[in-house]
Structure formats: C-alpha cells, structure tokens
C-alpha cells in the first residue's frame, strides 16, 4: 500500500515537473510547480517527516509561489520570443539530456542506494514529535549553522532594501509618517481678524 502511494505521488511529481518546463502559459507552469511541491510534501509525509512536509506546503506553496504568481502575472512575458529556436535546438537538447541521464543512471543507479546497502529506518510511534527532535538538534548540535543561516537572512533583508529603496523627491506619493504625526493645529489655523467697519466702495465691475 505504501509503495503504491509512493509511486502515485512520484508520478505526479515527475509529470508536473515536466509540465512546468513544457507548458506555454507561465501561470500554468507556476501552478504545476505548486502541484509538484504538494507531491513532494506527500512523499515526505510517507518518510514520517511531517514537519518538513508542512513547512514545504506553508512556505513554498503558501508564500513563495503566491509571490511568484504575482510576478508572473505582472510581467508581460512574450512566450513566442522565448520559444524561438525551440524546435531547432530540441534534438540537441534531448540528446544532451539523455546522455547526461544515462551516465548518471549507470554511475549511481538505484543499486548504490538500495535496501541492501541501507537499512530501513525505524518506525516511530504516535507520541514521537518530529518538531521536538528537529528543534533539539537545531539548537544544540547545529546551533552554529543555524546562527549563520540567520545572518544570511539578515544580509538578504539588507540587500533587498538597499537595492530597491530609493528616494524620489519629485514623485507625488503619500508621506504616511507625516500624515500620522499631524496635529489638529497643523490642519486648521485660526486667524484672529479684528472686526472693522466696512467702508462702502463703489462696484468697479460696472465701469468695465
């Protein structure tokens, strides 16, 4: 049963990955990528890596792919331009791909990672917490790597902000911080005007 489920999801993953690079419409390609993420999350579930499976769905499907879809929809991608020369290069590309696949397959075929070399990992009961185990090694054995990963994220933030933040004084954009900080005094100015008797002036319009 488990093997059957594995093959189903593997087939889903491989086929949708193929579709990602072969469909014409970039939005459809993005959706196929989502499907292949789901399939790999399911395979992780089979491996009892629940936390990783959930993270894959939440982070990649939920956040990254949605952003990606936004970008794809905003850009005007001319597929005809990109596909130019596709048919001409196809035989060469297929030949290279098959050659690569064949060499890798013959060098590191299934034999090297088969069950005769590796024992099947132990099954854990329902009380086994994947998250707790991950957390334990992450904050003890791998704390150095974990901290460096945090620094990489910080660099990512700095890089993204410094590359996109630019002040353009001429554009008419809202200055939100000024709007929030505004007081009633700034908006309404009460000007005291002394009451004066009004002199009569003859209307000038009539003379024109």
């Amino acid at each position: 049963m488990e093997t059957f489920v594995f093959y189903i999801f593997s087939a889903f993953m491989v086929l949708s990955a193929l579709m990602v690079i072969s469909v014409n419409n970039p939005v459809k390609a993005a959706f196929f990528l989502v499907l292949s993420f789901f399939a790999s999350a399911a395979i992780w579930l089979l491996l009892e890596a629940e936390f990783l499976a959930i993270i894959l769905v939440i982070v990649y499907v939920g956040a990254v792919m949605v952003l990606f879809l936004f970008v794809v929809m905003m850009l005007d991608i001319n597929m005809v331009q990109i596909k130019k020369g596709f048919v001409n290069n196809l035989p060469l590309a297929v030949a290279v791909a098959i050659a690569m696949f064949a060499t890798i397959f013959f060098v590191v075929g299934g034999e090297s990672f088969s069950q005769s070399v590796f024992t099947i990992p132990d099954r854990h009961g329902a009380d086994y917490s994947n998250v707790a185990e991950l957390g334990k090694v992450l904050y003890s054995d791998y704390v150095y790597s974990f901290e460096i990963a945090a620094v990489i994220l910080l660099v990512g933030i700095i890089a993204a902000i410094s590359l996109t933040l630019r002040r353009r004084p001429n554009t008419r954009h809202q200055k939100i911080e000024d709007q929030i900080a505004v007081k009633s005094k700034d908006r309404l100015q009460v000007v005291k005007v002394d009451a004066q008797p009004r002199k009569y002036e003859p209307a000038k319009e009539e003379q024109k």
Partner: peptide, 21 residues
C-alpha cells in the same frame, strides 16, 4: 558541509548585492 555551504552563501549574497548597488 553545512558550514562550508552557509559561509559560501553568506559571501556570495553580499557580493551579488554589492555589484548591483
């Protein structure tokens, strides 16, 4: 392996951003 890779990414990411600045 992890620290080799993470150090490399930390360096590369900084360099990409510096070039594009």
């Amino acid at each position: 392996f992890l620290t080799v890779y993470l150090g490399l990414e930390l360096l590369s990411l900084s360099m990409y951003a510096m070039i594009a600045m």
